[in-house]
Computed example of a mutant assay.
Amino acid sequence: MFAVVLSVLAAAMFATSAAMQQRAARRAAPDVHDRALPVRVFLLVRRLVKDRWWLTGWILNVFAFAAHAVALHVGSLTVVQALLVSQLLFAMLTIRRPPARAWLGTAAVCTGLALLVIARPSAPHTLNRGDAGPAVLVAAGVMVLFIGVAHVLPSKTEAKLRGALAGVAAGVCTCLTAVFVVLVTDTLARDGVWGLASDWATIGVIASTTASGLLTQDAFAAGSLPTALTAISIADPLASAVFDATVFHAGWRGVLWWPWSPIVVIALLIAGVALLAAARVQDRTPVPVG
């Protein structure tokens, strides 16, 4: 029960933090959205770190991460990760008069992701590092593709689409961070701290963590909070599932992962995204200045 309470608390704080940071990013975006991608991201970050609203959200995100870590320590990984998906529902509370289709879409996405998380395999006892390199390159290529498509679209393109594409890239990058963490902890267990100096995954952790943070803020700046957060929340577990199957060679839990379950997950995610895309939502409160 303690893990359940911490998981729900972490989900609420993650959602609130995302809402605060997204509002700050949206306020800073109009002056930089026409710049080239590297310049835009640099200018966006420079403005955000001076924004008290964004900094408060970042501090709240740190507390959320701590609560999530404690929940993982005292509770089941499956239960904690499934409950963390509820941050999408908490994010809806930041929306002004959300329509019924938005609630239905969010519930469908949460249900699909929860089923995917529950059915995901446990981490394998052995790791074939030879499979990791090519898979990381493919994932990085997919991430770059989504970034490129998001930023070559005409400026008149609907912001939701740009935010969704940037959110997918951020979600894939978040998955890469988790993969690098697995590789780094494997090196740490085998070779100790000194082994990290020669492990390419150590650099990967630093690079992917930085990139995922920047991409997340870019996704927040491009579109609405439900769009960006949904894209990130879908891309991360789906990419993780692919890595589980191809790199870690871990099987799905037979009791929970019936033959028709992938169809159910895909159907729920598609239905949820379609409903959210059709819903017109607004922030509950205006973004404060300063």
Rank of each mutant, 00 (worst) to 15 (best):
A82C: 10
A82H: 10
A132L: 15
P98I: 05
A108T: 10
G112I: 06
S198D: 14
F220E: 04
S212T: 03
A207E: 08
L225F: 09
K160V: 12
A166M: 08
T227V: 13
I206C: 02
C175I: 02
R97W: 14
V144C: 04
P121W: 03
V85R: 06
G105P: 05
W194Q: 14
L188V: 02
V138N: 05
I203V: 12
S86L: 05
C110T: 03
D191C: 10
A139T: 12
C110I: 01
V136E: 02
A139D: 02
T126V: 15
L153V: 05
A114M: 06
T185G: 10
A164K: 06
A219K: 11
G204A: 05
G195F: 01
L113C: 01
L127F: 12
T185F: 14
A178I: 10
V182W: 14
S224V: 06
S224F: 06
V142D: 04
P134D: 00
V152H: 04
L215T: 02
G130N: 15
I203L: 14
V172M: 09
E158L: 13
H125I: 10
M92S: 11
L196Q: 11
A169S: 11
P226Q: 00
Q81H: 06
L116G: 04
P121L: 11
L161D: 07
D131L: 15
R120E: 14
F146M: 02
A114T: 09
A159C: 04
L113M: 05
L215Q: 00
P98D: 07
T209G: 15
I95P: 03
L153E: 04
Q217H: 12
A197L: 08
T187R: 04
H151A: 00
P154H: 06
Q217R: 01
L113N: 02
V152K: 01
G192E: 11
A139Q: 11
N128V: 14
R129C: 13
R97T: 05
P226Y: 12
G148C: 03
L153G: 01
